[in-house]
């Protein structure tokens, strides 16, 4: 049980939950507000992370300039996907976004010259030279730690990620209650009705998609900073579905459900690491990893059966026609 008592481990779990909060906040704006089924959110995360890393390593840009550009690139990707695809029906749109996310991953895997290929960012300067994009961030982390009197880098990261995540959750919550958010919620209910009330539905949807994509791009930046290295394998479609799980765990439509869902998911994921009592202790470590995901799968099914509205959702809203 040594890992359990390790502060570093729990800080790591917390950081990941914070990154997933940002990632899923984007989905909440897209789906919870605008009713968009984006199954390719991970692509925007990849675009954000890669844009930043490539600008820093290949163009020699300052990380502080490259980072906002990463977010902007993710937003631009959202715009490029949305302009043609948002004219499609919801379920067709969902498949196009999944397709887009696989295209991004394949391009990242095969365009070695641009992305470092399947080996990831370490090969950004070509093979044989270990490329690094993270030194500026680490210096900042160290400096901030000194200012705050915190020695552990993980704890500093935890504070930074969660400050940003909570601030943005709060902002998103306020946004949902503005007249703008009201139109989006209306579109979620019935796009034709809203369009018959004089609202340009397409433009609102596009805005929601772009905002959500930008948040995924931001999540991608933190992901890149946290691990100082990443590869196309980090952007599997499964990541998007983790986001959806968090969204539904927490509750659709409520911004504060996102950090709650992300924390719950993070701790579920972490807690299943500690199956070291019988019968699990009879299994070897690889099998235990399978059991972990299996248990998570069962928990999801159980949750859907017992509490389909999520932790913070309202049952009444589930049954209205």
């Amino acid at each position: 049980m040594t890992v359990l008592s390790s502060g570093e481990f729990w800080a790591f779990v917390g950081v990941m939950a914070g990154i997933y909060t940002l990632f899923t906040l984007g989905l909440q704006i897209q789906f919870g507000l605008a009713g968009l089924l984006n199954f390719g959110q991970v692509a925007f995360m990849a675009v954000g992370a890669y844009t930043m890393a490539i600008l820093v390593v290949k163009q020699g840009w300052s990380m502080w300039l490259a980072a906002p550009l990463g977010v902007a690139a993710a937003a631009l990707a959202g715009l490029l996907v949305g302009l043609p695809a948002l004219r499609l029906r919801g379920d067709y749109f969902a498949i196009v976004t999944i397709a887009f996310s696989e295209i991004v991953r394949w391009v990242a895997t095969n365009e070695d010259g641009l992305t470092g290929g399947s080996q990831g960012t370490i090969n950004l300067r070509g093979e044989g030279v270990a490329a690094q994009y993270n030194s500026q961030w680490e210096r900042f982390q160290g400096w901030l730690g000194e200012q705050l009197g915190i020695r552990s880098k993980d704890v500093v990261m935890l504070l930074v990620v969660w400050s940003v995540a909570l601030l943005l959750t709060w902002l998103a919550g306020r946004l949902a209650r503005t007249p703008w958010g009201r139109v989006l919620r209306g579109i979620r209910e019935d796009e034709d009705a809203v369009s018959s009330l004089g609202k340009p539905v397409f433009r609102y949807r596009l805005q929601a998609l772009v905002l959500g994509a930008a948040l995924a791009g931001l999540a991608g930046l933190f992901y890149a900073w946290q691990f100082s290295f990443f590869s196309p394998d980090d952007f599997q479609p499964l990541i998007t579905f983790f986001g959806w799980m968090i969204l539904i765990l927490g509750g659709v439509g409520r911004m504060w459900a996102v950090p709650v869902g992300a924390l719950l998911f993070g701790f579920l994921f972490a807690a299943t690491r500690f199956f070291d009592f019988p019968p699990f202790s009879y299994l070897d470590s690889a099998d235990r990893a399978y059991v972990r995901l299996l248990v998570i799968g069962l928990l999801i099914i159980g949750l859907v059966l017992v509490r389909p509205q999520g932790l913070l959702g309202r049952r009444q809203e589930m049954v209205l026609e």
């Binding site: 959806w244 059991v291 299996l294 799968g297 928990l299 999801i300 099914i301």
Partner: peptide, 17 residues
């Protein structure tokens, strides 16, 4: 949709086990 993701996870891990 979420339940089917759960089933997918369970099935795949069972096959792996």
């Amino acid at each position: 949709f979420l339940a089917s993701i759960g089933v997918a996870l369970v099935l795949r891990q069972m096959i792996l086990l």
